[in-house]
């Protein structure tokens, strides 16, 4: 089995910040095979299309997945309305996740805003070998910092307005870490302009970099071709599909 679809029980629901929710879902067969960087495709009540949400935590022992999402429109609003104990319709796990290499001695995980959740499973795997840089608009939008600390990773917090952590963008501390050398990989998720800058920094420091991209989706499994994004491989342009070839791409292959 690569993925499955069914209705799964919500065990826990918490608000983490304004309009940001964390949901833990009991789905042993999905948790068993899910890997960092993959996503779940949730059908909100009353919608025709599913909504892709990254996996934020995988607990194989408990058979659970956790997702963290922000309410944007009707779909995410309806997902947020699901109560503990009720069921959620999910097609998962989907997509191609991050490339992990246990031999890496030092990696940097960069999350911007609602792009921070998919960094958590990576932080759990790399632990002390990881530095996690998280960027948010402002103090009240900050999420998951305690969870990252628990993994043993170094955490660096930035806010655009300086209300907490370093004032400024995630690229500043990233640049400093890259200049120190010894970084073997950068993993990032967040808004496109941020990812573009991160990819450029990693490229000039000659460090391997993977980014998780977003695109509007239909099937979520690679059949309908709606989620196209332009990539290049061996100098040739392709239309890759975020749901199947991604959402995680080698930053060198992305056409920004």
């Amino acid at each position: 089995m690569k993925y499955t679809q069914g209705k799964y029980q919500v065990l826990e629901k918490k608000a983490l910040a304004k309009d940001i929710f964390s949901i833990v879902i009991l789905c042993p067969e999905i948790a068993e095979i899910a890997v960092p960087g993959q996503f779940v495709h949730i059908l909100p009540q009353g919608c025709t299309l599913r909504r892709p949400i990254s996996i934020c935590d995988i607990d194989r022992e408990k058979g659970t997945l956790r997702i963290v999402f922000i309410v944007k429109g009707d779909g995410t609003k309806n997902i947020a309305a699901v109560n503990e104990g009720s069921l959620i319709d999910m097609l998962a796990p989907l997509g191609h996740g991050f490339t992990l290499d246990k031999s890496f001695k030092k990696v940097v995980l960069v999350g911007g805003g609602i792009g921070t959740p998919p960094m958590l499973p990576l932080a759990k795997i790399y632990g002390e070998k990881a530095a996690v840089i998280s960027g948010f608009r402002s103090a009240e939008a900050v999420i998951l910092q305690e969870d990252f600390k628990k993994t043993g990773a170094e955490t660096i917090l930035c806010t655009d307005d300086g209300t907490t952590g370093i004032k400024g963008f995630v690229t500043q501390p990233l640049k400093e870490l890259l200049e120190q050398g010894s970084i073997e990989a950068v993993y990032a998720c967040g808004p496109m302009p941020m990812l573009k800058n991160i990819a450029a920094l990693a490229d000039s420091a000659n460090v391997y970099c993977e980014v998780s991209l977003e695109e509007r989706m239909g099937c979520g499994i690679g059949a309908c071709l709606v989620c196209a994004c332009k990539t290049k491989k061996d100098g040739e342009e392709h239309f890759a599909h975020v749901c199947k070839n991604g959402p995680v791409f080698n930053a060198k292959e992305v056409i920004w």
Binding site: C47, M217, A228
Partner: peptide, 16 residues
């Protein structure tokens, strides 16, 4: 080019 899909009331649009 993307986006190639949008939700509509009880339906969707595509422009693959």
């Amino acid at each position: 080019p993307s986006p190639r899909i949008a939700e509509t009331p009880s339906g969707m649009l595509n422009s693959v």
